[in-house]
Design a protein around this nucleic acid. Structure first.
Lengths: 332, 332
DNA sequence: ACAGGGTGTGTTATCGGTAACATGATCGCG
DNA sequence: CGCGATCATGTTACCGATAACACACCCTGT
């Protein structure tokens, strides 16, 4: 079978050395305009395509930025991805993405796999990892950025916010508007770490007001709208024993809201519902869901900034708190 | 600066050749149990990590499967990704994903970039590409799979369904239930090709019943719930001039539904609304949105099947129609 | 006229694994 | 007891591009 077209073939066809071809195609050093033109034309004619693998090998620079996300099936992480990939469009770096399914063990396996590709930077979602993951990552001398969280022990840079503090905003708001019988809806413990931090933040904020908060588990992480809808539906009108449902995310809140509507419960009259993350669905649905804006897109963009700075040699660890703001809607 | 730990280092430490180390770590050929154990231990102790780049280079097998998706910020494409990556978990192939933002020009640039990584297979969303993309892809002797569509001129394999035929199901359903004043809500022409096919399918089906259908453009592709909500809100109660809104996707339908609710319009009494894709939001919201199930997850899984077969040497092009089924909801 | 400095191109070695072939030791069996 | 088969390991060359160095040539200024 015919081999791939390499620089050697182009060089032979033009009558120059492979080195000249290499230089001509990268146009960063002196090659005569005439020769360069001839090489370009010939390369096209022969159907030459550049081999990043060979370059990555020779230069020991992969051109990859590796990133782990809990899930791609989440509008917020997808937004972060978009923000980041958009900002990286100019650079010749390529994103290598993997999903952890909200499991640190899966994250470890993924990081192992990603590291074999020699990424030039590593972006992890969250600040909670296995010891092996921490060791693997630290052993590399590449920039590491944790995002969507402000880790207690950062591995390097961090771009995020305090999930607990953000959720406390919600509880403060509910308490200020007279709600007292609070419930939290989220995933079962053991999965999503950021969800757990939100839960703890909510519980702590409630406790600060002398209130207890019931925790309702809608299923294994990741939980979405259908899980919370099923949960609330199964509780029936008993859910009105609460006067506020604090949900771990907007989709979860939307599921609860829809289920309440089916039950004929008045939201926010009987029951307030709050979400988290300012997903599109929260702003579009009627009534709009009270939520917390965490600027998912902006996280990606800030990560890109930190990344570029790191590539420029700026190695001082940055820990950026992008904050989170309450966005009141019609459900509270 | 200290170099990375290579097989050479491990070999020297153990006192064997690099070849033996290579064999021991891949455990596919005969190495004595004792030697293998010692090599494994030493490799761990030295912090050796495998370099996929070197292997990809030497063997000319990258271990990558490249995939283009219009957007990751779309639950259905994310599901397809999940289905595919889940099914590929066993193989040592790694997915290399890129987003085209629904633009064939961007797709071409992306394909160019992806091809430099020497993927062993290529998965494209849709059957509409630039001539250059077609040429680039065809020049490679790797399996190509187009998905989410049944292209007129497939580049190789295809796993999808007819967007036009699927949307015709919706129109038939609406006509059968007495709707006559139809409008289609989608993106402006020129972007999303699958959206355009759905529009044409809807228009053709309406025409077959002697009905005209008004096309309402909610904005540039990709359009989502906020665009359709804004569109319907701007039309106000004039939207009731129609008795059915055929939406290009479930999010678009949900946006329209929410806007109708704000306007106090009765859905489905005054106005029917239909979506496409059976997104989670369509099944959870109240009322549930009449939609078309295209089994996004299953597309990914079937693509994985085709891929594995192709790697086994099965090169006969497969064109799989996974079909689409109408899922009536409460909005029609 | 000649040193010094660009400019354009070639030569060599190399990145880290692994295919292919080679080699020495051990073993089974007629 | 000898010979081929099997096992465990070593040697060599190489994948495609490029860094580093080398070199010939042509300027330009004093």
């Amino acid at each position: 079978m015919p081999m791939r077209v390499t620089m050697r073939d182009v060089a032979a066809a033009v009558g120059v050395s492979t080195m000249t071809v290499s230089r001509a195609l990268r146009d960063d050093v002196a090659v005569s305009a005439e020769t360069r033109q001839k090489i370009r034309t010939t390369a096209d004619a022969l159907g030459y395509t550049y081999d990043s693998t060979a370059t990555a090998f020779r230069t020991q620079k992969s051109g990859f930025v590796a990133m782990t996300l809990p899930s791609l099936n989440n509008a917020n992480f997808a937004e972060t991805y978009r923000g980041l990939s958009g900002a990286m469009e100019g650079s010749e770096m390529q994103l290598l993405v993997g999903a952890t399914n909200y499991r640190v063990a899966k994250e470890e396996a993924l990081v192992r796999q990603l590291l074999t590709r020699n990424p030039e930077a590593l972006i992890l979602t969250g600040g909670h990892h296995t010891a092996a993951t921490r060791a693997l990552v630290s052993a590399r001398r590449v920039p590491v950025i944790e995002m969507w969280d402000l880790p207690a022990r950062p591995l390097g840079h961090a771009v995020g916010f305090s999930n607990a503090a953000a959720m406390a905003l919600v509880v403060e708001h509910l308490v200020a508007t007279g709600r007292r019988r609070l419930a939290f809806i989220g995933a079962a413990a053991g999965g999503d770490q950021r969800g757990a931090e939100r839960r703890e933040g909510a519980l702590a904020a409630a406790a600060a007001h002398g209130l207890t908060m019931t925790v309702l588990e809608a299923g294994e992480a990741p939980v979405s709208m259908r899980h919370s809808a099923a949960l609330v539906a199964s509780m029936g009108r008993d859910v009105a024993a609460f006067d506020a449902l604090v949900c771990v995310s907007d989709p979860v809140a939307f599921g609860a809201l829809s289920a309440c509507r089916r039950l004929g419960l008045d939201v926010p009259g009987t029951l307030a519902i709050t979400g988290f993350g300012r997903f599109e669905v929260a702003t579009v649905c009627e009534p709009a869901i009270t939520t917390v804006d965490v600027c998912a897109r902006q996280i990606g963009e800030r990560v890109a900034d930190v990344l570029m700075a790191a590539f420029e040699g700026d190695i001082a660890p940055q820990h950026i708190d992008i904050g989170a703001t309450l966005t009141p809607g019609g459900t509270s």
